[in-house]
Amino acid sequence: MSFYRGMSCGNVSITGDGGMPITAYVAKPEGKGPFPGVVLIHHLPGWSEFYIETTRRFAHHGYVAICANLYERAGAGHPDDVAAKVRAEGGIPDAQMVGDTAGAVAWMRGQPEHNGKVGLFGSCSGGRHAVIYASQRKDVDACADLWGGRVVMGPDELNAKTPVAPIAMTKDLSCPLIGIFGNDDRAPNPDQVNQHEAELRKHGKDHEFHRYDGAGHGFFYWHRPLYRPEQAMDAWGKLLAFFGKHLA
């Protein structure tokens, strides 16, 4: 890449689950490409500043990037307020997330400067959602799960919105997976991460898991006390190398 690359950013409308128009934030590198693509699946704090900034970060590194507002149906307002409403309602249905994310992937594949490769990036609930999408669909080429909670779920956690535990879908995972985890996290805790990796190995899935001491849940989040710069910098390097390998 050229240092420092220009980019263009803005909102677009995509077709989400059930044909509903969904707003998405897009960042594109300067130039004709071809560029690989990254679809970001935001976390439960919502379509937040962190995810908008991270969309631009991927564009800086030479990716066309898009992050859809999965909480659009909850109404307008500050992302924190919208996310609080969604959280109080028990989150969004997994099936709706898949439909909305499919719209973002389709948008990506329709861009003339795109190289035909698409990666998923998600943290917290977005990491869980990325694993689900990559297990139910076959239109992505790499998947990044950052401390996705509730990949391992007990029977009492299943409901109409989350009917199947993501770990139960492992046999259908359609692309290489990178996992980034803090060993001080409680959701997922180290035992759950180990269970997930054991299932990936059982089914012969291409994956790499990276675990960090001294880091807990959300250690990339620069705006929160749980930020761990040393671990985050190392993990970003591994993540970009992973996408570089599978999406170039």
Rank of each mutant, 00 (worst) to 15 (best):
G99C: 07
D100W: 15
D100Y: 11
D100N: 13
D100M: 10
T101M: 13
A102C: 14
G103K: 08
G103A: 15
V105L: 15
V105A: 06
V105S: 13
A106L: 09
A106N: 09
W107Q: 14
W107P: 14
M108V: 14
M108P: 13
R109A: 09
R109L: 06
G110V: 05
G110I: 08
E113A: 12
H114F: 14
H114A: 07
N115D: 12
G116P: 06
K117C: 13
V118E: 15
G119L: 04
L120W: 11
F121Q: 05
G122N: 10
S123D: 13
C124V: 13
G126I: 03
G126E: 10
R128K: 07
V131I: 01
Y133D: 04
Y133R: 00
Y133V: 03
A134V: 02
A134W: 02
S135I: 11
Q136S: 05
R137T: 10
A142T: 12
C143I: 10
C143D: 07
D145R: 01
D145G: 02
D145H: 03
D145A: 15
W147D: 00
W147Q: 05
W147E: 02
G148C: 10
G148V: 09
R150V: 02
V151H: 01
V151W: 01
V152K: 02
V152N: 06
M153F: 03
G154F: 04
G154E: 07
D156W: 04
E157Y: 05
L158D: 11
A165K: 02
A165N: 05
A165F: 04
A165Q: 02
A168Q: 15
T170A: 15
K171A: 15
D172R: 12
D172N: 04
L173W: 06
L173Q: 00
C175P: 04
C175R: 11
P176Y: 13
P176C: 00
P176R: 01
L177E: 14
G179N: 07
F181N: 12
F181P: 00
N183Q: 10
D184S: 03
R186I: 10
A187L: 08
N189F: 01
P190D: 09
P190R: 04
D191S: 05
D191F: 06
Q192R: 02
Q192M: 01
Q192A: 01
V193Y: 02
N194D: 08
N194E: 08
Q195L: 04
Q195H: 08
H196C: 03
A198G: 00
L200H: 07
L200N: 07
R201T: 04
K202M: 14
K202I: 08
K205M: 10
K205I: 03
D206Y: 06
H207L: 00
E208V: 08
E208C: 02
R211G: 05
